[in-house]
Amino acid sequence: MNRRLRTALVVSAALSTGLLMTACEGGPADAAGKTGTASSGTPADPAAAATATPGAAQDGGAAKTGPSTADGGGKAEDRSSSSGGDSAAADKSGYGQGCGTNDLQWSAKPMTQAGGYYQVGVKAKSGITCVLPAGLPVFAFGSGGTQAGPAEQVAGEEITLTGGKTAYAGVTPKTTDGDTGTEYSTVIVSVSEDDPNPVSLNVGSVVVDKPLTTNWHTDPADAVPFTS
């Protein structure tokens, strides 16, 4: 009986020891698992973590890419639009603006009507569109600069020149009787008095005394400088 009792006690002690060791191993493992989860603060599910990471990267990319693309697109359009207007202005000097003397092709043709005068014609050079001012053209004969006065009392109208459209003005070199006057062979012409690029036209030999000029007209018949 004593031997059996001792054997039973030994077996019972061994079983108790095993159970205690098993419980101790499970406890720390669980505690460690809980502690690790709480301290890391990251999702336990790897799939959830993978989903969150691309989402954050996508948002970041959108934040950088979105405004950059929009700004770039806007600027490109502005540049394209701005580039189109600048290119046109560069190719067409004076485009849509007031005509400068050097924007025009000038000609002077002697006419016998109204006692003799010169029909001066202007048209825009190739690729240019510009507006002739309503004021009188400037005609000054020879080196003495004898300037033509107005043959019309009413100011003319602005004329837009483009392509082959021509405007005309008539200038009478001599409006006085008798043999008075000075002989010249050239006339200096310009669109306005402050134009820095006047043009010299050859008119042959002509006597000049108190010259007169008309305004610009699109019909050459309206550009005859009648003096009476």
Rank of each mutant, 00 (worst) to 15 (best):
T180Q: 02
A108T: 15
A169M: 11
A151K: 03
G144K: 14
A114V: 12
A151F: 00
P173S: 02
T166P: 05
V120G: 06
A124L: 04
L132S: 05
I159A: 11
A124H: 00
A155N: 08
V138A: 06
T160Y: 10
G149R: 15
S126V: 08
S126T: 14
T175I: 07
C130E: 08
A108R: 11
G181P: 13
G149N: 08
V131L: 15
G156E: 13
G121Q: 10
I128A: 07
G116W: 03
T160N: 11
K109M: 00
P150T: 14
P110R: 15
K125F: 13
Q113T: 06
G145Y: 05
I128S: 02
T175Y: 11
T172Q: 05
S143N: 15
T176H: 05
T112P: 07
V131G: 05
G116P: 01
Q153D: 10
G135L: 03
L132G: 04
G170D: 01
F141Y: 14
G156W: 11
D179E: 15
A167S: 04
G142Y: 10
K174A: 08
E152N: 14
G127K: 12
T112L: 07
F139N: 01
F141I: 07
L161H: 10
V122N: 08
A169E: 00
D179C: 04
S126K: 15
E152T: 03
A124D: 03
Q119F: 03
S143L: 09
E152Q: 11
K125C: 02
A151S: 14
L132E: 07
G181F: 12
Q119H: 05
A134V: 09
